[in-house]
Design a protein around this nucleic acid. Structure first.
Lengths: 116, 116
DNA sequence: CTACCCTGTAAAGAAATTCTTACACCTGAT
DNA sequence: ATCAGGTGTAAGAATTTCTTTACAGGGTAG
């Protein structure tokens, strides 16, 4: 419909991805330039499996993009870079997104009503 | 410095507050108009203590504001309304906010380095 | 072959959230 | 006094998220 209108679930996923100090630092790092997993892990100071997990979550939310490349010496390197997102959060935007949340209201679904 | 510059920790708190389907629906509801806790709980279809907890989290993040008022018949009513926030999320904004995260890097402090 | 550096993932433990249930208090009406 | 409707909070279970440790595979270099 409009430019800044992610689906309710998508929005929650994005927000959840960003609502973490470590992931915020990861995005901040990648904003300075692309990097591959092992190097990024050393830079930030976390274990590689942990970083791997966080990157996965960020990528699932569409905030970063990873590409597997081959370096000159034949090593498989997974490079990550930030996606081009621009999200605006206002009460109106949130209200709009909330309409498309796929979750059953506990007894408050549209079209089904009980009186007492 | 600029208008859209919350502290790193504040930003994480806000995002965490919004990264939840139920809380998103709460904000959406309040965007249509203020309401008091018990009524809002019935409307959304959740237990009052649960709503109370979520409202507390939203208020702590500065996204909603609650005021305790006295109705005509002397009942204490706690009304909540959405705060006037406008948050923009881009890689640059996040990178800026990440600088002010209060959290110790595990072994990557400024001024201390070991080689091997 | 051994060492080094890259990738990925599974399993298990620790920690933080979410949700329910139950309790306690106040005021006006029956 | 009892009921109805408002408030708040505490304790514990259920669930999810975060983190560590360990393992497995592939390539180049010595």
């Amino acid at each position: 419909m409009n430019a800044a209108g992610p689906t309710g679930d998508d929005l929650v996923e994005m927000l959840a991805a960003l609502a973490n100090p470590l992931r915020l630092r990861i995005v901040a790092r990648l904003a300075e330039g692309r990097d591959y997993v092992s190097h990024l892990a050393r830079e930030i100071g976390v274990s590689r499996p942990l970083l791997h997990m966080h990157l996965r979550k960020l990528e699932a939310a569409g905030l970063v993009v990873g590409t597997l490349e081959l370096s000159e010496d034949g090593k498989a390197m997974k490079y990550y870079e930030v996606a081009d997102f621009d999200l605006r959060l206002t009460a109106a935007v949130l209200a709009e997104a909330a309409k498309t949340l796929t979750q059953e209201d506990p007894g408050k679904g549209p079209g089904a009503e009980e009186h007492s």
